[in-house]
Every structure is written in C-alpha cells, then in structure tokens.
Design a protein around this nucleic acid. Structure first.
Lengths: 339, 339
DNA sequence: AGATTTTGCACCATCGATAGTGCACCTTTA
DNA sequence: TAAAGGTGCACTATCGATGGTGCAAAATCT
C-alpha cells in the first residue's frame, strides 16, 4: 500500500498527470497566486496524502535560503536555569513554525566555536547564544557569516544582548541576607562561587559590594571566593573556608544553584546549630531550595522574559550592540514548619 | 576584506581557476581518491579560508540523502530526568559529528505527531522518542517514513525500546520504605502520582504491589492515587487525602520528581512531627531531595545508559521490537545532621 | 620513438523544491 | 466577429554540493 521510497513532487506529478511545479504549488500553498484550479489542488493533495508525501525541507531550504532552523548555544541542559531557557526557546521557536536546535557546549570555548560553525553550516536562520564563555569571538564569527544573533545571560560587546540585572539581583539578595543577620555580624558575610572573569559573576560581586557599602561595610577580598560554578569545587572551597576560620560565616551569598548543591553537601555534615546560625541565600532558583527547613532567599532569573526579549531583537532585525536588562525576582523563603 | 555574501564552491573555483567539482573534492576530503594534487588542494583551502567559506549542508544533504541531524522528542526540558536525557543525547550526538535536534512536546499527542512529522520533513537521520504519550502511532509514522527510530522511557509495541526497569525500581523503593515503617503500619503505605495509563506508572504500581505482597499485603485500590505528573494536582491530591483520612499515611511512595515537589508544597505546611512519622520515597532523583532533613530514598534512572543503549540500537540498524531494560539505582538517604 | 599507464582535472547530471515566463484555450467586451 | 483579457497549467533555470565519466598531458615502459 504505502510507498517505500520517499515520494517527491515528481512522483506525484506523474501520478496526477500534471507537472511538478503544479504539484509544488498545490502542496506549499502558493497555488492561489499561481492560478492552479481548486480541483487540481484537491486531486494532488489527495494523492499526496495517499502516498504519504512529505516535503524535503533540505531542497526547499537550498532553493529559498531559509531553513526554518533556529539555533541556540547553551552551556548545559541539566541545570534548572538553562533548561528553563531551553524550554522557553523551544516553545517560542515552535510557535513560529520553526525547529529549535539546541547545542550544549559546557562553557567550553572550543566547543562553542565548533558548535557555532556547525550551526552556520546548517544555515540556521538565527542564533541565540546563552551564557557563552567567549562572546566576542563568537559574535565575530556570526557577523562574518551574516547570521542574525543575540546573546543571552552573558552579553557581547558587538551584538544585542539580553541579560538579567545581576547587580540589582545581587544587591537585593545581599540586603535580604543582611536583614537576617545580627547587626554585629554584618561584616562576616561571604560570597561563594562563580567565575570572577565572567560578566555575570562580576556584576553580582559588584552588587554584593554595593549592598555592603550601604551598611557601611567595605567588602574585603577574602570575603569573596569565586571558586567556579562546579559543585565539588564549591563544596571543597567551603570546607576549606570552614577549617581556616574555624566555623561558618554569619551569612553566605551563594552564586548559582550548582554551587548551592556543593555547599549543601558540606553543610549537611555540620551540626544543625551551626548551620542554623548562618544566613544562606542563593543567586539562582530551585523549588527544592525554597523547601528546605533553613530559610533560603533565592534569586530567580526570568527565563521566559530573557528569551522573549531576545527573540524580539531578532524579529526587529536589531544588530545594534545594545544591552537589555531583565530584572530577576527575589524569592523570599516561605514559612516552613516541617522537613 | 571579508566577502559579504555566502561563498560557494563556484566562487572559490573562479578565484582558484579550477572547476567547482575540484573545489568540492578539495574541501570535503575526497580529493585523495579523486586524484587532485596536493598543491591544488592547498591553494584551494587557502582561498577558502581567506574568503571564509563554509559548506552548505542543505545542499550536501540534498545530494547525499544524509543530513547529519539526529532528532529527539522529549516531554520537557525543564525536568531533571529529561534534561539529563537531553544532555546525554546532546553529548553523544555531537561526538558523532552530528547535530542534535531536541523538540519538547509536553506529552501532548498532537504536538508529538506534529514534531515527528516536522523532523521527518527535515530528514533527520534517526529519531529518539522519549516518554511519548502515544508510542504506537508515532512508531507507525516513523516506519512509514522509513526513519530509523528508538523509543526511550516509554516503550513502543513495534520498535526497539529502552526503558528503565520500572517494576524492579518500584519494588526496591517500596522495600526501602517498608523497612522504615513499623511492622503494624505496613498496610498503610500509599502510592502517589503518575498516570496509570502510561507504561512507566503502570509498572511502578505493579512493582509496588509485588513488594507489598512480599510483606503479605494486598494493595487496595485506595492505596494508589495516580493523580498525574503535575505538581499542583499532586499537592491537592495529597491535601485531600490528608483531610479524608485525618492524617498522613505511614509511608508515601511518590512517583516522579514533579509530584514530589507538589507533595512537599503540602507537607511543608504540616507540623514537623506528623511529617517525621511518615516514610517518604520518590521514584526519581534530585540532589536536593536527598539533602532534605527528612530521609528520602530515591530511585535514579540512568539517563546515560538509556541513551547509550538507544544509540546502540540505532547503530546496529535494529528494527526489531525488542525492549531493553536498564536497572535504575536506589539512592538511600545520607545521614544528615543539619538543614 | 612509440605504446601504455598514470596523473590531474573538467564536464555534466543529479538531489527536490521554487518561481519566472510563456502559451494555449476560454470568456468577456466593443 | 474580432480584440482584449483571464484562466490553468507546462517548461525551465536555479539553489550548492557530489560523484561518475571522459580526456588531455605527463610519466613510465619497451
């Protein structure tokens, strides 16, 4: 019954006794403007369905220089924030009748470059670059290839970028933590995790410092431990910290959810009283974090807004290197009775 | 300096004073077998780099009937398990020099069908279907299109499938929960969450029942509340349950992480003693879950293994409808002091 | 030196869809 | 009734890369 080989418009043309271009027009909707009679169209569509015809988008793309592929470079899928970005991107892209191609590159420069080149080879119609480690180089590659692109989360000098207002978020979180502290312990807050070389971490540290300044404190360099985004390194960094200062600080600003997990790994090994005495906040959101017995204020980045605005730049054919800031929200801990 | 338009092999051919087919061969590596001199190749490669040439994979795909695109249908990105599957798929696909195309379809039949058809239109070389709500129909579509495919997590009657050993996992988790219970409370364990119509939930319920049987218990239908995979519905189902029976059961088998979050939302509103008295386990893994003060045994599905075996089926050109079971691991709670 | 082999490349059809152009045939209008 | 316009479609070039085939020129052999 079913044709085994993939059917083309030529096969259908033969079956219908018309020309291939007529079949093409009938099937892609351009038949009205090409003055193909409704009868012929019906006949063709019927045959097409019968033999299970599907367009070859490669051929279409080759001819029309539009692939309907939208690319995204993402550090990783298995991360609350990034997967949420991926989800929004996927939704948004599919409502546009296009296909999302998400490539994860582990924040690795070589992988990023390779992935961008790969996507260019596939002639993606546009590219969203999220949290890349090397924005300027990647932006340059896109520009050379004449590929519309936007940066998200980590901005680029030479292209439109949409990022969370990291400084403001950090300020809010720091205030929340300081509020929980005793007056005399204010100087004892620490910033843990992230990569100081990255834009996001840098701004969060700035926000942290500024918030301290509001409390007439100047943050010392020792108060800032940017040990990377890794789980284990953060655990170890915190352990070392604990050892060297013989105890926890009075407050901990933890940069990103991965770091938070690492910190928890260490903290859960400590006596409850010690942990209870330490105010902990995290710049990133995870529902579980907010369900811990220990109250954890968290900052949630608005993935949906980030993606929406990024797409807006693409829609508007914007190539100006302007930066759009999206304010993240501070999620205060609920009052928890159990667990 | 840089060419603005996308360069083709014809442009380079003109620049190098050779034919297009020579350029093609020089650039795609087939020049050895085509007896193009090393000198000519070097000259061509140099020009290509100079003008920033990149292949048009659409054209190549059209000609060679291989796109280098590998598709995946995924219920959602923003979920620990699925995002982890996505990550593994992405890694594995990229080591094969191919491009992963992951489409999320929210377990929605129409979206799934549409996505599969879309991927067929793009001529993906193979397709992995994860946790689909309608495997048989989708399998049929793939078969008609002559598209190599494998099902993951949710099996299909007519195609190779790789799934976690849900029954065994559920048995192990149930045993772990029963071990925590008092002898007399064994009959009081409940199964919460999931969709009984889906293969995975069905088998987990079977495992749950079997484990109870080992304890000489027959699970009553009221002990099984398959309220779906949603967070809010699970919270509400648990709340209702609590009301109607005036308290928590002695043990709770929670099916999937989303349900677990929903349950937590309710549980955190209860007095600590009540929650403490209830053994809680979750069929799914989240590091935060294992960091709660309340000990939570969890079942972790091996995303890497699932994807690895799925790819193996594709590599072996396997179309037999055989099912590969991957044993999930039971993760026992750590001894937690704090939080 | 002439015959034979090898080297190095050009030429051309092809993959499947799209869109410009042309041309019968039919209908309307003067 | 002839001119003018409309309708319905076929023909053909094209997108960029690939691979089979053919043919000179150079290299090797007799």
């Amino acid at each position: 019954m079913e044709a085994n080989q993939k059917q083309t418009i030529y096969d259908i043309a033969k079956a219908a006794g018309v020309s291939a271009s007529t079949v093409g027009a009938a099937l892609n909707g351009s038949w009205k403007s090409r003055r193909i009679s409704k009868n012929t169209v019906n006949r063709i569509v019927e045959i097409a369905e019968e033999v299970g015809y599907t367009v070859n988008l490669q051929a279409r793309a080759l001819r029309s220089a539009k692939t309907g592929l939208f690319g995204m470079i993402l550090p990783q899928h298995d991360n609350r924030f990034f997967s949420s970005i991926g989800q929004c991107f996927s939704n948004e892209t599919r409502t546009r009748q296009a296909l999302p191609v998400i490539v994860s590159t582990r924040r690795d420069r070589d992988q990023e470059v390779q992935a961008v080149r790969g996507l260019i080879d596939y002639s993606v119609d546009a590219l969203m670059l999220v949290g890349t480690s090397n924005p300027d180089e990647l932006g340059e590659i896109c520009r050379e290839a004449n590929l519309p692109h936007v940066f998200v989360d980590q901005p680029c000098e030479g292209a439109p970028s949409v990022v969370s207002d990291n400084k403001e978020g950090a300020r809010k979180l720091t205030y929340a933590l300081l509020d929980q502290c005793e007056k005399n312990a204010v100087r004892d807050i620490m910033f843990l995790g992230g990569n100081a070389a990255l834009h996001a971490t840098d701004l969060r540290i700035q926000g942290f410092r500024e918030a301290l300044l509001q409390h007439d404190q100047i943050a010392m360099d020792e108060q800032i431990v940017a040990c990377g985004y890794g789980r284990a390194p953060t655990r170890d960094a915190l352990a070392k910290l604990y050892q060297s200062r013989k105890g926890l600080p009075s407050a901990l600003f933890i940069n990103s959810i991965g770091c938070f997990e690492g910190a928890l790994e260490f903290l859960t090994g400590l006596p409850a009283e010690e942990v209870d005495a330490c105010s902990i906040g995290c710049f990133d959101y995870d529902p579980f974090g907010s369900l811990l017995r220990h109250p954890i204020p968290m900052v949630r980045q608005r993935a949906d807004e980030l993606v929406r605005r990024a797409y807006q730049h693409l829609d508007e054919n914007d190539t100006e290197p302007r930066m759009t800031l999206i304010e993240p929200e501070l999620i205060l801990p609920r009052v928890i009775n159990a667990l």
